[in-house]
Write a protein that binds this DNA or RNA. Sequence first.
DNA 1: ATTGACAAACTAATAGTATTAGTTTACGAT
DNA 2: ATCGTAAACTAATACTATTAGTTTGTCAAT
Lengths: 192, 192
Amino acid sequence: MARKGLDKSVVMKAAAELIEEQGLSRFSMGELARRLHVKTASLYNHVDSLDRLLDEVGLEAAARLTAEENAAISGKTGDEALFSLAEAYRRFAREHDQMYRLIIGFSRRSGEMQIREAREILEPIRKVLEGYGLSQTQQYHWQRILRGMMVGFAIHEHAGGFTGLPVDKDESYRLAVQCMADGLRRAGRGSE
Amino acid sequence: MARKGLDKSVVMKAAAELIEEQGLSRFSMGELARRLHVKTASLYNHVDSLDRLLDEVGLEAAARLTAEENAAISGKTGDEALFSLAEAYRRFAREHDQMYRLIIGFSRRSGEMQIREAREILEPIRKVLEGYGLSQTQQYHWQRILRGMMVGFAIHEHAGGFTGLPVDKDESYRLAVQCMADGLRRAGRGSE
DNA sequence: ATTGACAAACTAATAGTATTAGTTTACGAT
DNA sequence: ATCGTAAACTAATACTATTAGTTTGTCAAT
């Protein structure tokens, strides 16, 4: 009873599907093994550990998010690009909530937490900021500010927060992004 | 071998200490029991479950955070209050990182996540916003925006993010809060 | 003082988690 | 045809949390 065509990419794909279907909380090596008609131990021929597996699935999800961000801003500049980026980010977080969890990095794995910040992931923001004529220093600061805002909003919504108040969340977000846009323009003027 | 003076508050206190000392990831009912010189099962005379225990410890931590926020803004208004609030929030998240985790709610507990939003917790922000003369609607929006920004920053720092860039994080935060301040003033003028 | 009840500790067991060691076996290359 | 390797297996370990059932200490009432 050997040879079932499993390999790392098949396992990762199945893991991603399982997580999207049933949620991160119900995911386990045992569940994954069952779906692949294999015993749990066999998975270890293809992945190092649960944590590593989740890391890698998360990285792939991050790549998808980045791709969507890039698509959203392609051909746009200035405020148009900014709003488009912000919207794409938020949409991804809502539509793929389990994957977004994985990207942000608060899985179950022992309370660890990390936000992925590879070069490519920061690219979309960097491109959007280019349009505002910031100094290098200012650009770095605004990278953080923008990311902070987007993450903060995504996490809140994700957690079911922001629901108590009787005003539209889309509008709240729009105002937040507008606030960033105004701030960016101001910063751009300042550093000329 | 009965009667060791345990009760719910003692257990919760010990749990909080253990978490602050060793981190959420190393916390377990077994560890907690060992610290209290008791068998694991005995804890269940005082707490319902691990999840409930963490919830309650988290709620207590949230109360402490709120108290610090209130202290920070007491006697202040306008931008001064805003900056003071933002600084207090960030300081708490840095100084009590494990407790902050618990507040935000990304413990291990099954990937659940919730941001606590009881009335009292929102009070400090509400008070600060009072100074900007916003309409009720605007105030609700800005409550979200402010919270989003503070959470986003805290989470990032927490996750070890923001470290790649060669500019000061304090300054990034200051700029973010300044951006909020400017936006708030603009919003205040707009709704008069 | 004795008794009796309650609460708090215990022991023991269950079911779930990830992971490792060691064994078998199928397939592909020689 | 055979032989080695990689992929599956079985079995075991060491953790989780949690529940059921049992013992026992303490406090209150008689």
